[in-house]
Amino acid sequence: MYDFNYHKPQTVKDALSLFKEADDGIYLAGGHTLIPAMKVRLRAPTDVIDLSGVDGLIGIREESGALVIGALTTHDTVATSEVVARAIPALNSLAASIGDAQVRNRGTIGGSVANNDPAADYPAGVLALGATIKTDRREISASEFFTAMFETALEEDELIQSISFPIVESAAYIKFPNPASRYATVGVFISRHGGQVSVAITGAAATVFRCPEMEQALSDNFAEVALDSIQLNADDMNSDMHASAEYRAHLCVVMAKRAVASMS
């Protein structure tokens, strides 16, 4: 790790101004992507702005039909939250499937979503549930948020403060983990509300995406058999030493069926 300046602001305003003053600043949430990258010298920020002291970024609450999770809430907190369990239990199991206990005790929802790793779990939930990302300056809808691999609609210094998930009738997340990293080789999040079905898939392509073929089929008939004839185009899928594009395309359908089965 190279030397860097460490800051621990107490307000969002201070965090923003520290970021502006830095040559090459970066926000630190749980750090479970950033710190390993710094340790192997792939990232070398001049200034690390630790958000763990900023007031108001941690917590889970239900608020006018939505589940609101503070950006610095850890995966473990979400995984074990009774509020989440009452509102959107699929988010409990999504959070519980991330990494291992150590990672879940440090990693945060805001960090995961802002990083937009193509194999991260949260983006699938955020997109399928049509969540709203509330930042220091605006609200961004999930459909506008995830723009490309490791890229989001966030401005360079923009800070996520919370994520608001509409509470749906039912939802499920099923993932096929990479056996080495346990990130999602494919992860499928399905939500169902008022006859509308949303399907978001992570791990399979450059960034999380909605799957209109599955949504249409499941809106017509919410059953596993509805997905029997779905064949996703492997051309759009990731291919690496762990899984070919063709296998990923196949797994998307299998995981989607399992999600449907768990909701039926």
């Binding site: 056996p179 080495a180 990293s181 990130y183 030493m241 762990h242």
Partner: peptide
């Protein structure tokens, strides 16, 4: 070496 860490080398 593509499997240079535990992210890719599966123990």
């Amino acid at each position: 070496l593509l499997t240079g860490s535990y992210m890719d080398y599966c123990m």
